[in-house]
Simulated scan of single mutants.
Amino acid sequence: MTTMNAAISTKGETPILDNGQGVIDPDVYFEVNKAPADLPEFEEKLNAFVDYHKAKNNNVVLITSGGTTVPLENQTVRFIDNFSNGNRGATSAEYFLEAGYAVVFMHRTNSIQPYHRHFIPSQRGFLDYMRPTEEGSVEVRPEYVEKMHQVLLRYEKAKQENRLLLLEFVTLPQYLFKLQSGAKILARLQEKAMYYLAAAVSDFFIPSSKMVEHKIQSRDGGLTLTLDQVPKFLKPLVSNWAAKGLIVSFKLETDTNLLVPKARAALERYGHQVVIGNMLKTRRQTVTFITQHTEKVITLTKEELDTDVEIESKIIPELARIHQNWIKSGSTE
Rank of each mutant, 00 (worst) to 15 (best):
M106S: 01
F105I: 09
P40R: 15
F204Q: 07
A55K: 15
T109N: 10
A266H: 10
R88E: 00
L176D: 00
L197G: 00
Q292R: 15
M1E: 04
D51H: 11
A242T: 09
T69I: 13
V170P: 01
A193K: 07
T10S: 11
M279T: 11
R283I: 08
E304P: 04
E139Y: 12
G245A: 10
E139V: 15
S137T: 15
F49W: 08
L189M: 10
A55I: 09
T256K: 15
P114F: 02
T294I: 07
S313G: 05
G67L: 05
V275I: 15
E168C: 07
P231A: 04
E253W: 09
T226N: 11
P142A: 12
E213T: 11
G125Q: 14
G330Q: 11
N257D: 06
D51R: 14
L62S: 03
E333S: 13
L17K: 04
P26H: 08
G66L: 05
T109H: 09
A102M: 09
V145Q: 15
M130K: 13
N162W: 06
N240G: 02
W326F: 04
Q150D: 06
F233E: 00
I80T: 08
S249H: 06
Y129M: 07
Y270A: 03
N33A: 02
N59L: 04
L267R: 08
D228R: 12
A266C: 08
G86E: 02
V61K: 03
N74R: 15
R283H: 06
S181R: 11
G20A: 08
S313T: 09
H53N: 03
R117D: 00
E333R: 15
E139M: 14
T307A: 07
E168S: 13
T2Q: 14
T288Y: 01
F250C: 05
L176R: 12
V70F: 00
V140I: 15
E161V: 07
P132F: 04
L280R: 15
L227V: 05
T2C: 09
N85G: 06
N278A: 08
H116G: 07
L165W: 05
R269W: 03
L280I: 12
